[in-house]
Design a protein around this nucleic acid. Structure first.
Length: 286
DNA sequence: GGCCAGGCCACCC
DNA sequence: GGGTGGCATGGC
């Protein structure tokens, strides 16, 4: 079995930090999809074993060619991020397929992670090509045209709720939308272009920019990040922006001044760290 | 059962 | 430009 020597990498922290969905554990392997092909991956200490796709694609997807130590030391400028990096060391921002990532985060709107997984599982089952891989029957992620041509009524059977129009609309747009080319654009331009899609607002666009278009400065702010930022940095933000409630742009501005070009990495560490931290505190109160 | 979830659109001022 | 109600659905 081929493997890649990967230091400063945690497969589990990367796959299960809420940036991607649909990876399924069977024994020591995690089954998923990279570059439109079924794959399995497994980590044993510093080695990442893989099968189903070329090494080049695995390296790209898991951002294994990035100088991660430099990014970590750059953002760990206060105890919060220091602790987060310490606890979730090896977490890397993935480079997902932009179409897959876009649909995923459209499904995330006003939904929790189990709900997102459910929607995506149903979409794949209903519209994705069935394949046999490593003795397992899997469904690939649906093609845009198959989603674009689906009826809203049928899409709703995938538990999409009011997101049905968003997903269908993007499927329709994809025909003339070179979403991959946004990798070569600046962050602001890529985000604006994404937001021309019905249903893609600032937060979802930031997720797509960060998790699939190499825009590490993107700083998506959901309810958890908002809570975490107010909780950990409220006093500091208020010193810079004297308000009682902070808007999306306020928090973003602070994040960029604090973490600069790699703010997205800080965001991802805050996401996993604060969710655990806040959940812990919630338990202690009961 | 009621509240909440990796928000957005339409509409208001 | 910035601030609210409605929205489908399932988890907990």
């Amino acid at each position: 079995m081929p493997f890649i020597k990967a230091d400063n990498f945690s497969l589990v922290h990367s796959l299960f930090s809420g940036q991607c969905f649909g990876w399924q554990r069977i024994g020591v392997w995690y089954y998923g999809e990279i570059a439109g092909r079924p794959v399995k991956v497994s980590q044993v200490r510093g080695k990442l074993y893989f099968d189903g796709v070329e090494e080049r694609e695995v390296r790209k997807y898991f951002a294994l060619n990035e100088n991660i130590e430099k990014i970590y030391s750059g953002i760990a400028t206060d105890p919060v991020i220091e602790n987060a990096v310490e606890e979730f060391r090896g977490l890397r921002i993935l480079k997902q397929d932009p179409w897959v990532c876009s649909v995923s985060f459209l499904c995330s709107i006003s939904c929790n992670i189990p709900g997102i997984e459910l929607q995506l599982r149903k979409l794949k089952h209903r519209y994705g090509t069935a394949v046999e891989f490593d003795g397992h029957r899997m469904h690939l992620f649906p093609r845009p045209v198959d989603i674009g041509n689906a009826s809203l009524k049928e899409l709703r059977k995938c538990s999409l709720g009011f997101r049905d129009r968003y997903v269908k609309s993007l499927g329709e747009r994809m025909g003339g939308f070179e979403i991959e080319e946004l990798r070569d654009k600046e962050y602001a331009e890529a985000k604006d272009s994404l937001m021309e899609s019905f249903g893609i607002g600032p937060k979802v666009a930031d997720c797509i920019c960060l998790f699939s278009l190499d825009k590490t400065e993107a700083f998506p702010i959901d309810v958890w990040i908002q809570r975490a930022m107010v909780g950990y940095y409220g006093k500091e933000i208020r010193r810079m922006i004297p308000k009682t409630r902070f808007s999306y742009k306020d928090v973003q501005k602070f994040a960029w001044e604090r973490w600069g070009k790699d703010a997205g990495y800080a965001q991802q560490f805050l996401y996993v760290y604060s969710k655990k931290d806040l959940k812990q505190k919630g338990r202690n109160e009961h």
